[in-house]
Structure formats: structure tokens, C-alpha cells
Design a protein around this nucleic acid. Sequence first.
RNA 1: GGCCCCGUCGUCCAGAGGCCUAGGACGCUGCCCUCUCAAGGCAGAAACGCCGGUUCAAAUCCGGUCGGGGCUGCCA
Length: 438
Amino acid sequence: MKLRIAPSPTGSLHIGNARTALFNWLYAKANGGTFVVRIDDTDMERSTEEYKNNILENLRWLGLDWDEGVDVGGEHGDYKQSSRFERYRDIAQQLVENNFAYKDDGAIRFKVPENQTINFKDFVRGDMTFESSDVEDFVILRSDNSPTYHLASTVDDVDYGITIIARGEDILSSTPKHILIMEALGATLPKFCHLPLLFGSDGKKLSKRHGDTSVEAFRDKGILNDAMFNYLCLLGWSPGDDLEHFDREFAISKFDFNKVLPNSAIFDEKKLLWLNGQYIRSTSFEKFSNDALSQIGKDLNRELFNEETERLNIILPSVQERIETMNDLYDQVSFLLDEPFLVNDQEWESVNSIEAQKYLNIIRNKFIELDEFNLENIESLMRNVLEEEEIKTKVGFQSTRVAITGTKISPPLFESIFALGKETSIARLTESIEKLTN
RNA sequence: GGCCCCGUCGUCCAGAGGCCUAGGACGCUGCCCUCUCAAGGCAGAAACGCCGGUUCAAAUCCGGUCGGGGCUGCCA
């Protein structure tokens, strides 16, 4: 059993292609089949090396690997169609000689037989029937001697011994052409499986208009590869038992093309985001901390100082509980970094009051006298002052939050103060008192 | 227009004739928890496109209809 995906390097890896690749991979893994990745770059105008690399890199990022094909090799060369033009020309010539095709204005067209019924079985859609009278004679070799997709793709599938062709439903109407070529070549027909398409929120084919459509874009947004893999699995398939959060091994153990739905699905970024949050929360703290520190370093575009890392590790457990993507990290923890600390006037105004000023003043003085600056002491100190001075929690804590973190939305307050440390906390409180009483 | 595919809550999925007064999840609303924001917990609104037929019985089978989508390139 051999399956393949054949992306065209005319753009960054598209979510729809990623899902198709993923389903092929799952089926191959589930059945001990061989998975091939080949590059369909017959469109010389639009194909680039950068896109090719991008596609391969993102497939790997998703956790997919392949047994044969571009980059990993195999018995069929480099698995790029641009290297096999001679082969396609020979086949085209052979088809002409055997009267299956003919020259037309410099191009070569396949001669579609009259009154022939083309049948094939589709894993997802069952028995399919097309009439050859509905298929026009189609070009297989362009007048510039380059092969079209129909020829190149079909020849490769035959040459490489592909036994199951699982691809997007957009190719369903072209399948009769491919079958006709295969028959003319005397090849054994593979099985077909046309997977449902992915649509944008307006129900139209997922395209740039819908915002991000490439795997890379979501990767850049801080989506975890495990979450992306999991979410893509859920589009058109489910393992049953209402299970939604699962890993690759589990998906492999349950996957089958027969259980893939025939109807198209709409890509819902909201659910992806939610799932990503679930993954972040279920990651071990050790791994999360590692990823988080490297992400923050990336956002900062510099190495983190040891002191920063120490401070971050204090707050990170709390942050892990409340972010949706790794890109949400920076805003949550930036107050702990050795970077300019600025609070805008609006934030100050929104928490300013006589009571607040009084509260900040008292806790600052008590912080100075506090010998053991730990979580427990900070909390009890702050709560006691609230009680003694009869100041409302919101007034005291929110003003302290702005003073310490710079905003009204932050990780838990006591952890934030503890992570920031005694000295800096006192300095920020002092600064805030000056600012507020001005 | 022609050919083809598809049709369960707004969205993703469960449902393969009686277990369905249709289940789960995202999102949404409310409540609880609470130092903000989240997370978490609980509750709620929300769907079988429509019309016929088959059957004792249909979301599930058949036909039609309507709706959506794909293809119809010397793009893939």
C-alpha cells in the first residue's frame, strides 16, 4: 500500500493541503503503508524553491514524516516533476503513437473515447460514474513541451506505484481524465479517495480573503504543532465517543478513510484557539517553561538575563493557566523584563483616588520593613492593610496592579509582586505615589 | 449553462430504521469561584432545509425540490 501527497510549490503550505497530507499520513501509519511526498512543480512560472522548502518544513512541523520522496529519497530520483520532463514527453509521444492522443496547435491532447462510462470506487463517496461524452479532449503536453498536471501527476502515480490516491474533492471531476490516461498506459488502477474541502467562515473555498490560510501563519501566531495537528484531524473526521483532545498515536489507532465525512467543513479559528489553550494547559510545566522562555527571547530579539529567567519562572505557572497562544505570553510578563517600564496616563487615571494613594503609601512603607519578602507575607500584609484602613479590595488591589505591572490586566497580583522582587516593587510603588499625587 | 459532490445547533463532530422529548465540543448568555484577566465548575438558548414515498416505525432508505460547493485552463 502506497499513498502520496503532491503539493505544488506555488505558495506556503495551505491548511487544506496540510489536512489532506495529514489524512494520508494517518492512513499510511494506520495500515503500515508507505507515504510519499512528491513535488508537483510543472507550473514553472509560479513554482519556487522557497515555497517548496516552506511546505516541507511545515509538514515536518506538524509531525508528519515520509518514507519516500523529496528530501528523503527513494528509488525514483528526486521526486520533483521538473526533473522528469523527458519522461512525460516520452509518454505523450507514446500516447500519440498508439493513437490515444494527437497534436493540436503544437500541444498534445488526449483523445477521450466516445460513449464510454468511467467507473471508480471512492472511499468517501462510494461508486462514482462519469460519461466520457462529458469530458473534453484535454491537453497533456503544452506547446512549450511541458507536461500538464493531468499527465505528470498520473504518470508519477503509475511510475511510483501509488495504490491509493487521496486528494481534495476539487480534483474529483478530473479523475476520469486520470483514469483514461492510466488505462491508455495499461496501468493497474489505484483506489481513489476524495476528501472534503475546507472552507472559510463565509462557506467559500478557503482563501486569502479569510485571513490566515497557511500553516505557517498559525505557527507564527503561537499555535502549538500538537494543537494544530489535533484540530485538523477534527475537520471531516472524528475518532468517535465524542473525543476531541487526542494525540497522534491515538488518531492513528482510530483513523480510517471510510469514516471521513463527505461534506466540506468550515475552518473555525476560534475552536483552534481554544484547543491550543487546552494544549498549553496540559503541557508539563518543564516543557512549557522552556518553550515560553524561548518565545519571550524571540519576542525580545535578545537573550534573557538570568535574573529575568528567575523572575519569569515564578510567574509562568500562573501564565500557563490563562493564555491561549504562545504569542499572548509577552504582554502578560513584560513587566518582569529589564525593559523600559511605562504606564500610560489612562491607566493611572482609572485607578486614582485618595484611598488608592493612601493604600499604596502604606504598603510601600510596610514592604520596606518586610524582612521575608515571600508570597504569603505579601498577601497577608496587603489584606491586613485593606482591613485596617477599610479600603475596598478593588481600590487597593487594582491601583497596586497598575503600579506594579503597568496595566489593570495581569497575572495574579501577589505572584506578580513576588516575582518582581522587593526592591523593584518598592521602586514602582514609589513612582506610582509620585505620579498619582501630582 | 453542462457535469459532479454535499446538506444534523452559528461552527466542528456523534447519530449507520426503533436506544433521539437528537448527544458532545467551540462560540454565545447567565450563575458560581475570584485580587484583574483568564482558567475551572454549573445551568441555558440553539439543528435533523423542504415535499413526497417505503416501513408498524426515518435524522437515518428512495425520489423530487430547494440551497451550498467544486469542475468546466496549454493552473494544480
